[in-house]
Amino acid sequence: MDALKPDDPQWVGPYRLDGRLGAGGMGQVFLGTSPGGRKVAVKVIRPELAATPQFRARFAREVEAARRVGGFHTPQVVDADPQAESPWLVTAFVPGPTLHQVVTGRGPLEADAVLRLGAGLAEGLAAIHKCDLVHRDLKPGNVILADDGPRIIDFGIARAVDASSLTETGTVIGTYAYMSPEQIRADRAGPASDVFALGSVLAFAATGHSPFDAPDLVEVVQRILDQPPVLDGLDGELHVLLTACLAKDPAERPSVADLPARFAGRPTSGGRSGTAVRRLRPADTPYFAAWPAPTSEGGLMLPALPP
């Protein structure tokens, strides 16, 4: 956490601001304290964006999207004021580093840890999709590794599946290195697009780089569209699952509803995943006990920018 700057607000609504958690194109995220003494994350939108009626409407949809998903897989929404001079959103603070911080700071995760992470993130995506939402920007910087499991953050560009004005063709939204082919082509991006992003995020966790890594953006895009993912060093069920998630054709990717069980090595509605059932999480240990301890670097609802 960074210290507040001289021109930062001291309060947002009834919440005292204690420091800075992150910043991006949509605004600033602060660590705050509720009147009752609980730690919260406060997202404040930039004034120039708040002056745009279309953006205020988008922000109001973000708030409602986050409320619908709940707090088990995403940070729980505590409070919000989309009509304030600078609109703001408050969520419960989730302590823990991002996946991007962990991998860049300590190196790739072991295969079993990646499978455990895949089960948790797939479960979160399933909950999001049940609310008729598509995240559309899942990436390592949008995954908080809390002690009791991962949290998916940043619903700044999550969209209701049936909101045609926001899911129509010709709209490219997301972070290129983790986009699906259909997103890059500006086609309609449905739940299968999040499955592709999940495969890319888990490949990063296992290898330390995107499966379509390249020196420049043009080549990254070309590799996503036309080339197979680079999954060097990965084998077994992890390789099988990531390859399936990263299929170019959305129809060939696995259903997100089946993925939690498949990553955990349990039977699914389509039969066994191909490996023996494995116990990835002992009952008497925290979900991510083998990973770095939670820190104050955690955050939530961060703007949709590359990590």
Rank of each mutant, 00 (worst) to 15 (best):
Q183Y: 11
S255F: 00
L202S: 01
T268E: 08
R272H: 13
D226L: 09
P181Q: 07
V201T: 13
D213P: 03
V218S: 07
R223K: 12
A197D: 00
H209F: 09
R223T: 03
P181E: 08
P228V: 10
D249T: 04
S273V: 13
S210V: 07
A186M: 09
D187L: 03
A197H: 05
L198H: 04
H239K: 13
I224K: 13
A189W: 00
A186I: 11
E219G: 07
Q227D: 14
H209E: 12
P267W: 12
T175S: 15
T207D: 00
A177K: 11
L246Q: 02
S210M: 09
A264I: 01
T207E: 03
G270D: 12
L231V: 05
T275H: 05
L246R: 04
A197M: 10
A203S: 14
V256S: 03
G174L: 06
V256N: 09
S200D: 06
L217Y: 14
G271K: 14
L225V: 03
T207F: 00
S273K: 09
S273N: 14
L246S: 04
T171S: 11
E252C: 12
E237N: 06
E219M: 13
A186V: 05
L198F: 05
A264E: 02
Q222F: 12
P267L: 10
A205Q: 07
L166T: 01
F263D: 06
G174Q: 07
D232Q: 11
T167N: 15
T167G: 05
R266P: 10
L238N: 00
D187Y: 03
L231P: 02
L234N: 02
Y178I: 05
A257K: 04
C245L: 04
R188S: 08
T171I: 15
H239P: 00
A186L: 12
E237W: 10
P254G: 08
L259H: 02
A247P: 06
A251R: 02
R266V: 13
A203E: 08
G274L: 09
E182S: 05
S269L: 14
T275A: 09
L241E: 01
A251V: 01
V201L: 06
A247D: 10
L246E: 11
M179N: 02
V218R: 10
L166I: 06
A251T: 01
G199M: 00
A214K: 00
L198D: 01
R266E: 15
G199W: 00
R188T: 08
Q222L: 11
L246N: 06
A203W: 03
D232K: 10
P260I: 05
G274R: 14
T167F: 12
A247V: 05
S269N: 11
T243C: 08
A261L: 14
G190C: 06
T275W: 12
E168H: 14
D249N: 09
E168A: 15
D258M: 08
A206P: 00
R272T: 15
L259Q: 02
Y176W: 11
P229I: 02
P228W: 13
G236A: 04
R253C: 03
E252D: 04
D194A: 00
Q222K: 11
A244V: 03
A203F: 01
V220E: 06
L217E: 15
V240K: 12
F212I: 11
P229C: 08
L238M: 01
C245G: 06
P215D: 15
T207G: 03
R185N: 07
L202Y: 00
V240Q: 13
Y176M: 15
G270M: 15
R188F: 13
V218K: 09
S193A: 02
G199F: 01
P260Q: 13
